[in-house]
Design a protein around this nucleic acid. Structure first.
Lengths: 258, 258
DNA sequence: CAAACCCTTCCATTTTCCGGAAGGCCTGTT
DNA sequence: AACAGGCCTTCCGGAAAATGGAAGGGTTTG
């Protein structure tokens, strides 16, 4: 019995380590074995084993018949309570469907988390231009239509954080100059909509508009993504703005009701 | 400085206490203040404060502008990875919509967790009979159509656990006799469908059928809920069974595809 | 302006956590 | 049939992280 009771190095808060195990899951890895989880979360097998036991006990994770761990129902139930996730999605969905029906183009709904866009819903027109994004996916704030809207209305601190850092380039037309972006963001605030012309892929153009809460704060953004050259932004802008305002109104209803 | 360094009583695993904070959230309480959370999770304010800080840091929770805590986007993203939650829901949805279109009745999709049914999707016919259930909601295994299917194919241990315990009564027709339930479950296994006739409410009848995984294990159940007296179970049964088999097939496709 | 909330921070004690090692169970190989 | 390699599970004494009353600051209420 030499292995027991030896000095242990500093580790960190347990709760954080437990969350690190949850964070190892992702679209690419929806199920993992103990060893995989321990590796991804960067902790010894025995530690991971103990913490996973607690997570399973509570229902955050489940084990399938092969012993692999996967996300449990309890976490799904909890996730459905996220106001900026499922809540927003449910309220906005009818309007997004209308917009999709009318235009036959891609419709996107997104919120900002930190310095990233998180896509909450995406409706793809059948013949519409393919887009890079996925529901639950994240993207840079500086390139997409929704991103520009959300960045334009983000706290100054966040804006400077994004503009001061490295600005990712996706195409030859991606705007990576901080001052030019600053001008674009000012335009977005003045005009009430954003345009991302071939900044993400060379065949796509997107038009975004802000969704506000009952206090006028911008909490989300909608966008239409069309093939570059097929439609003038001028015809799209009113549609997107109208949709955004309708959703804003629907959210306000929700606040009053409950 | 008398308050510091006093003996602390036994508490329990930190991770479990952190999860208890998450567990305090629910449909009835989607947002809470620090004090509310501490009360519901049964821990001192300062302890709750520290743990909540870690949860917010990681993105499991967010604070709104009033300082209240609510479920964060990160948890929504994670929840969407639950194979038995969002995964099942997405694959089954087209079939459920077909069933709903054809019958104009309530369609339900559910899985078992422990000794309860968890509803994963519910499509309500516009003029259909009102049902007690909610997506994400839980219910006894012994009363509903889906519940009877899931219980009939649950491990013996679970069945005995349920039948040996107190069996909840909802109406005068709720079956609460363990032996009668055992006979009903045997019928469900032989026939491949279940019937719950006015066992939940006096105006509803539901017909359930099992959904299997690629290995033949029953992993979920579908049901139609109709107003009692409006339709004969005999006409509903083939519809529900066909739908269940179609979903079973769709799941198998998914397994093969990856 | 005091009382009643709420939230946040502090830190000495003690509780929980830590994780290498050992052992069990498979599957595939020699 | 013995072995090697892969998983998972359990053990427990020392060490690090967790604990929670009290104190202090902020805001709303009467």
């Amino acid at each position: 019995m030499a292995g027991r009771g030896r000095p242990t190095g500093p580790t960190g808060p347990v709760l954080t380590r437990g969350l690190a195990l949850l964070g190892a899951f992702g679209p690419a890895r929806p199920a993992m074995t103990l060893s995989q989880l321990a590796r991804h979360a960067g902790m010894p097998l025995s530690t991971a084993h103990r913490l996973l036991g607690e997570l399973v006990e509570w229902g955050a994770l489940e084990r399938d018949d092969t012993g692999s761990y996967r996300i449990g129902l309890r976490l799904w139930e909890l996730g459905a309570l996220a106001p900026r996730g499922q809540g927003l999605r449910e309220r906005a969905l009818p309007f997004l469907e209308d917009l999709s029906q009318i235009t036959r183009e891609n419709v996107q709904l997104a919120v900002r988390e930190g310095t990233e866009v998180v896509f909450v819903e995406r409706i793809g027109g059948s013949g519409a231009v393919p887009v890079l994004t996925r529901v639950g996916g994240r993207f840079a704030l500086t390139a997409t239509g929704v991103g520009l809207v959300l960045l334009a209305h983000a706290p100054t601190e966040v804006q400077e954080d994004v503009l001061g850092g490295r600005i990712e380039r996706f195409t030859e037309r991606t705007v990576t100059d901080a001052d030019e972006l600053r001008r674009m963001l000012a335009d977005v605030r003045v005009n009430g909509f954003s345009i991302s012309d071939r900044q993400v892929t060379m065949d796509a153009l997107s038009v975004g508009a802000p969704i506000q809460d009952e206090r006028g704060q911008v909490v989300a953004a909608v966008s239409l993504v069309v093939r570059h050259g097929t439609a003038s932004p001028h015809t799209l802008t009113p549609l997107v703005r109208t949709s955004a305002r309708a959703i804003t109104r629907a959210l306000a209803e929700g606040y009053r009701a409950g």
